Amino acid sequence: ASVPGNGHFELVQGAGGSLNGTTSFERTNYFETMPTHQLELALWLEADRMGSLLAALDDESMENQRDVVKNERRQRYDNVPYGTAFERLTALAYPEGHPYHHTPIGSMADLDAASLEDARTFFRTYYAPNNAVLSVVGDIDPEQTLAWVEKYFGTIPAHDGKQPPRDGSLPDIIGEQLREEIVEEVPARALMAAYRLPHDGTRECDAADVALTILGGGESSLLHNRLVRRDQTAVAAGFGMLRLAGAPSLGWLDVKTSSGVEIPAIEAAVDEELARFAAEGPTAEEMERAQAQLEREWLDRLSTVAGRADELCRFAVLFGDPQLALTAVRRVLDITAEEVQAVAAARLRPDNRAVLVYEPIAADDDENDESDENEGAEQ
Rank of each mutant, 00 (worst) to 15 (best):
A109P: 14
C313W: 03
I105K: 01
T23Y: 09
N225K: 13
G281D: 06
D78F: 11
F277Y: 08
P282Y: 10
A278W: 05
Y94V: 06
F319Y: 03
I174F: 02
A354E: 07
M192T: 01
V136D: 10
L223T: 04
T202F: 00
P165E: 02
H159I: 08
T257Y: 01
G83N: 05
P198I: 11
W252Q: 05
L191W: 02
F239P: 03
D351M: 06
A194I: 11
A85N: 13
Q293Y: 10
E359L: 09
R66Q: 13
S2D: 14
L318P: 02
V261Q: 13
P264W: 09
N131G: 14
A328M: 15
M287V: 13
S249L: 06
L253C: 11
A309E: 00
A158E: 14
V305R: 06
V305F: 07
R124V: 12
H98G: 09
E297Q: 12
V137F: 14
E32W: 01
P35Y: 14
Q379N: 09
T336M: 09
V355N: 01
E87A: 15
S249K: 00
E262M: 07
Q65W: 13
D254E: 14
A91R: 14
M287G: 13
L11Q: 08
I173N: 04
F319H: 11
I173D: 00
M241F: 04
A236P: 07
P322S: 12
E373A: 13
I156K: 05
M287C: 04
G138N: 02
A211N: 10
L242G: 04
E370M: 03
G246C: 00
D58R: 11
E117D: 10
Y100T: 03
P198M: 07
S259T: 05
N29E: 05
V210L: 09
P142Y: 09
R179E: 10
E280H: 13
